[in-house]
Design a protein around this nucleic acid. Structure first.
Lengths: 248, 248
DNA sequence: ATGGTCCATATTGCATTCAATTCTTTCGGG
DNA sequence: CCCGAAAGAATTGAATGCAATATGGACCAT
């Protein structure tokens, strides 16, 4: 008889099944998917550029199968286009699609704001207030980088306060698709837009304090609408400058 | 010589590449993906049931590779869960997740209504009016099946009128995830809810006529909220009846 | 009889392989 | 000198193969 003692108490088999909050994927495929997504979102491949299967395989040290699986997923997420027999290209957003994305983001944030008003705690509001004033500081100092960082954080916090994991995941998805666009330089020429955005954020905070769902919903949508307009104007100008580098 | 006349004006070669509205995927993988998704959405596999790779392979007459790719995509869409080394299971929605889904749907429809007010044509409104009264007829005759069919069509038309292909695609995605739940029998016990829903639809139509975006947005959200409540109550009752078939 | 261990089977994850399509280069003609 | 065609190289899409892990059942000990 060999009283096979169950290894030892410290290596208790963790219950990876009953996790319902956020399902984990410790598989190779999952890791590759995340890494490839980051790689693309971070802009390592130019807009419309090919996604070199073979090269990425050796880069990640894997075979083509898991990479191709990841590509299919990224295609369904809208990050890349899959041209039959011609490989994957990082999807370049037309002006129209960019506008559509911003509107959907607006809808999601609008929803998030409404739900947040139902569920947010006083502590979370206090935290957002803190961030708000921090952001205001960056605004006063004209620190665009700091401003945007906190700005994203505030929006993120609101979505988290909605207590809706599905919404959070969807929001993250679309945020990734937009993040490829560098709209950080938006306020470079449009100072007044920056002030406007700051005022909108005042309204957001104020509505959140009152937990006025419908109002916050409206404010957030229009906030994103304005963001959209600014982003598209910025993009158009950039395009125009590119197509005619030396205007007469 | 053969004066290759450009066929004829009716069969102009369609540009399948420059299509930005809805990109096509004529590949085998794309077809399998669509077929498998339908297969699951239509409920051919029980909730939480295994998705038999090999069996489906022979069923579709393909090898495992494209099927596995499709499964990865369906997992990212939230239709199935991928357990490492243990295969795919059709995702069973907890009550909480179902509620989350309904809320997100509410957010999307809310957005769609707002955008629709900006873009809808008089003809489209007239079409929705027609559908509305047709649905009202089904309501009067207590024809639930007909009612639900037109109901879905109206919501679909509103989303289409938003002129936002991204939103339309996302909406379809979530609709598929919910469609597995049979909530057709919702009004069976709750007649008053049916009347309430009908009144909400009156308000929807009325706001749409006036193109009152914010209002319609609000109405649609609350409409979906009520749908959500009804669906979850229905589900809970069904569960309760299942766990204690013979109440004392 | 019950609980646990061990082994055979089945299934999964990934790598490799092969056919098919596309891209590139080179050659010939105008 | 430029353009077009054709062959070769490279890349993609899908099938198959193999190692690793999970599943199911028989067997043994208590």
């Amino acid at each position: 008889m060999k009283p096979v003692i169950p290894s030892d108490p410290t290596s208790v088999p963790v219950q990876t099944e009953a996790v319902d909050a956020g399902r984990e994927e410790p598989s190779l495929h999952g890791e590759i998917l995340a890494r490839l997504r980051d790689y693309i979102v971070e802009g390592n491949i130019p807009d419309g550029g090919r996604v070199p299967e073979r090269q990425l395989c050796s880069m990640f040290g894997i075979s083509r199968t898991p990479l191709r699986e990841a590509l299919k997923v990224l295609a369904s997420e809208g990050l890349v286009d899959l041209l039959p027999n011609r490989g994957a290209r990082v999807r370049q957003l037309s002006e129209r699609e960019l506008g559509e994305l911003f509107d959907v983001m607006g809808g999601l944030e609008s929803l998030a704001g409404r739900l947040a008003c139902e569920n947010i705690t006083d502590e979370e509001i206090a935290e957002i207030e803190r961030l708000h004033y921090e952001m205001y500081g960056f605004y006063l100092h004209r620190d665009m980088h700091g401003y945007f960082r906190i700005n994203q954080l505030i929006h993120q916090k609101i979505v988290e306060a909605s207590r809706n994991a599905t919404l959070l995941a969807t929001y993250g998805n679309f945020a990734g698709r937009i993040r490829r666009i560098r709209y950080s330089a938006n306020f470079a020429r449009k100072r007044e837009r920056w002030g406007e955005a700051m005022r909108e954020h005042e309204m957001i905070l104020e509505a959140l304090r009152r937990r006025a769902g419908s109002e916050l919903s409206d404010i957030l949508f229009h906030h994103l609408r304005n963001k959209r307009t600014a982003a598209i104007e910025h993009l158009s100008e950039a395009d125009a400058a590119l197509s005619s580098p030396v205007p007469a």
